[in-house]
Simulated scan of single mutants.
Amino acid sequence: MDALTKPDFMMQTYIRCTQDALWDALTDPGQMSAYHFISPKITYAEGVYTYHTADGGTMMVARTLNTEPKSRVEQTFEPHWAPDISASRTVFLITPETGHMKLVIEHYDLHFPVVPGEGVADGWERWAAGLKTFLETGEARRFNEKGGV
């Protein structure tokens, strides 16, 4: 958690994998494309991840702000699906525990209320389910509303 501010949204999960595997899944666009619940293609260039829609448009952009290798990633969260939503900031915190990894997801600077099971909360839950499934089984699985793979 940032020392001076409290996240607008926070969740954690535990994943049976190595620290290297979790780091790679969070930072390699090829792996990210395998489990992201909406974006089937993610590209990376010069510190910027671009999340593409199925038709090739831009769904979202995430600019890398800070990393601590294998333990922390901080990025912008710039939604392009709704241009009226301001950019916010996300932090992924990776902590090794015996036999598994703890992943904390923090989302800051949201300009709307977080409602459990809806919107940003639902999106992070679906994203985390895909990540966990991908790392624990090797299966590329998208947990979206349509149930697509």
Rank of each mutant, 00 (worst) to 15 (best):
E68P: 06
Y108E: 06
A87G: 05
Y49Q: 08
T50P: 02
S86R: 11
D122E: 14
G117Q: 08
A121E: 09
P113S: 02
G47Y: 00
A54H: 12
H100P: 03
D55A: 15
K102D: 01
D109M: 05
E106I: 03
Y44N: 09
F92C: 09
V48C: 07
R63K: 13
Y44S: 09
Y49I: 05
A121N: 15
I94G: 03
A62L: 08
E78V: 05
R72S: 11
L103C: 10
G130W: 02
S86I: 04
L93R: 14
H100S: 11
H107E: 06
D55N: 14
T50W: 01
H107P: 04
F77L: 14
W81C: 02
E125T: 07
W124E: 11
W124R: 13
L93H: 12
H107L: 07
M59Q: 11
V73F: 01
Q75L: 09
T95R: 07
I94P: 08
K102A: 11
G123R: 09
S71C: 10
E125A: 11
A129C: 10
W127H: 15
L131C: 14
D122A: 15
T64K: 07
F112A: 14
A121P: 11
I105L: 12
V73S: 12
H107N: 08
T67Y: 03
P116S: 00
V120P: 05
V91P: 06
T90L: 07
P96V: 01
T95E: 08
T43N: 02
D55R: 12
F112T: 04
Y49K: 10
A54I: 09
L110T: 04
P83N: 05
T95K: 06
Y108I: 07
G119I: 02
T58F: 02
K41C: 01
F77P: 03
Y44Q: 09
V114N: 02
Y44F: 15
F92V: 03
V120H: 00
Y49F: 15
A87R: 03
A45S: 14
Y49G: 06
A45T: 13
D109T: 01
V73E: 06
L65T: 03
G130M: 09
Y49W: 11
T76M: 06
V91D: 01
T76V: 00
A128C: 12
P116N: 00
V120K: 00
S71F: 01
R63E: 13
G117P: 15
G47H: 07
R72V: 09
A121I: 03
S86H: 07
E118I: 03
M59L: 15
W127G: 12
